[in-house]
Design a protein around this nucleic acid. Structure first.
Length: 447
RNA sequence: GGUGAGGUGGCUGAGUGGUCGAAAGCAGCGCUUUGCUAAAGCGCCGUACCCCAAAAGGGUACCGAGGGUUCGAAUCCCUCCCUCACCGCCA
């Protein structure tokens, strides 16, 4: 469970850390020049990935050797071919030269294959090496090493018996899990009546907050994205089983708006003036939740399809960390305006996602679960994703550099929904609507 | 879904087998001239990777992607992706 040292665990809740569906990698030059630094940072995550650093360096040496030899051969062939061109135009015989060059062709093909293979090996290894955690990240093996950053508000003191969101949802007919299962199997929600209205109100409330007050550009992206958006060309099938694929897996249902939105500018060179780009996007998110069957499948805490408002920033390297802090604060604002108690936790090295250099989790208090629910994971990827997307910007000196990417939910809907109705329940079985949400909901309570 | 036309550097746009990594123009950078602005002249100006201790310098690859033909491919052939136009279908 998430929590800083010394904190009594409230309950062991299922983690829902966002899978980074964008594969990414470290800069081979950084590894070459500062292998010990990279090794120690990667080792701080635990696991044995640091050993791959030596492997990748070994392959890198071989690769460069092969590449140099190949280039030399290509240079020779190029020179001789031009010579043939010259001779022919003068009507001279070229058979000997042609035979010679033809022979070089075989060597070149062989070396090309070798080089490509080494290149692929290096790439595969690089893709397996996680990002280097930022030096400020607390060292730890697992979630118990996480650090409490701040806490906001108080756990609500509820006058009557505490009902969880499932009970409240049933009695107030806010959603119908049985009938949703009839349509799509377990793990799907059908919101009904006031529940559907509440879901819609929350989406609009969040989008308006981020676009009108926080300066994000609203974007409504495709929910279906192509394979190369997910993986690039020859990718690890690492997350494939977590996603719903279509048309023989050439298209995927986006597991988070992070995918279409972060990829929005991929393969572009941005100008400094237009950074940072700030996006807010509402999308449904589709996840197989493979491997999690059997645990915590009741209710709306972990489902195969859920709504989410996602915040994404594309920034220059110079300002990225302050943008990351600001994004987290923007996401927190949602809970503050809803007056829901939450805490912010920084993930320790052992708990950090593969691509992330630093992550803050925002966890809302759930009276029904008697625990905190992760509703946002605000991650800073530095240039890890950008390198893979080939998304760059021209810095002040005109040099091309990879951008930094940041994302976090603002927020994930069903868990906010659950925490809200649980926190605002009244002894008579009705649920109050937070004041700031009332204009969106169009009523002051649900009964 | 069908038919047709295309995809070339930050942009526009030449280039149908041999000094083409690619003309020209625009934009950008530097210098000169001009009292400022403007204009003009000259020069520089793609990306990635490799060699070199580094700099200087040299090299290879890249003209949507991948394969093929050839001594040699931006140029010819095949497959795929995408864009545009029209037709069909449709919320």
């Amino acid at each position: 469970m998430r929590g800083p040292p010394g904190w009594a665990p409230d309950k062991d809740l299922p983690p829902s850390t966002e899978p980074s569906t964008l594969c990414a990698m470290l800069d081979i030059r950084l590894i070459r020049e500062q292998p010990d630094f990279v090794k120690s940072r990667v080792a701080s995550r635990g696991g044995s990935d640091a050993a791959k650093i030596d492997q990748v360096l070994q392959v890198d040496t071989e690769r460069r050797k092969a590449e140099t030899a190949l280039q030399q051969l290509n240079a020779d062939r190029k020179r001789l071919s031009k010579e043939i061109g010259g001779k022919r135009s003068r009507g001279e015989a070229t058979e000997d030269l042609e035979a010679q060059v033809r022979q070089m062709g075989d060597q070149i093909s062989a070396l090309t294959v070798e080089t490509a293979s080494l290149d692929e090996q290096q790439r595969d290894l690089l893709l397996q090496i996680p990002n280097t955690p930022h030096e400020a990240v607390p060292i730890g093996q697992d979630a118990t090493g996480n650090r409490l950053v701040r806490s906001w508000g108080e756990k609500p003191t509820l006058p009557g018996p505490v009902h969880d969101h499932i009970a409240l949802g049933e009695s107030l007919k806010l959603f119908d899990l049985e009938r949703a299962a009839k349509l799509s199997g377990s793990g799907f929600i059908a919101f009904t009546g006031m529940g559907a209205r509440l879901e819609r109100a929350l989406i609009n409330f969040m989008l308006d907050l981020h676009t009108r007050e926080h300066g994000y550009l609203e974007i409504s992206p495709p929910f279906l994205v192509r394979r190369d958006c997910m993986f690039g060309t020859t990718q690890l099938p690492k997350f494939e089983e977590d996603m719903y694929g279509l048309e023989e897996n050439t298209m995927f249902l986006a597991p988070t708006a992070e995918v279409p939105v972060t990829n929005f500018h991929r393969e572009e060179i941005m100008v400094l003036d237009e950074l940072p780009k700030k996006f807010a996007a509402y999308t449904p998110c589709f996840r197989r939740e493979a491997g999690s069957a059997g645990r915590e499948t009741r209710g709306i805490i972990r489902v195969h399809q859920f709504d989410k408002v996602e915040l994404v920033k594309v920034t220059a390297a110079e300002t990225s960390y302050q943008e990351w802090e600001a994004l987290t604060v923007n996401a927190e604002r949602v809970l503050q305006l809803l007056n829901l108690h939450y805490r912010v936790v920084e993930l320790c090295t052992g708990d950090l996602g593969f691509g992330s250099a630093r992550t803050y989790d925002i966890e809302v208090w759930s009276p029904g679960q008697n625990g905190y629910l992760e509703v946002s994971s605000c991650s800073h990827f530095e240039d890890f994703q950008a390198r893979r997307m080939n998304l760059r910007y021209k810095d002040a000196s005109g040099k091309n550099r990879f951008v930094h990417t940041i994302n976090g939910s603002g927020l994930a809907l069903p868990r906010v929904f659950a925490a809200l109705i649980e926190s605002y329940q009244r002894p008579d079985g009705s649920v109050a609507i937070p004041e700031k949400l009332q204009p969106y909901f169009g009523a002051t309570e649900i009964r």
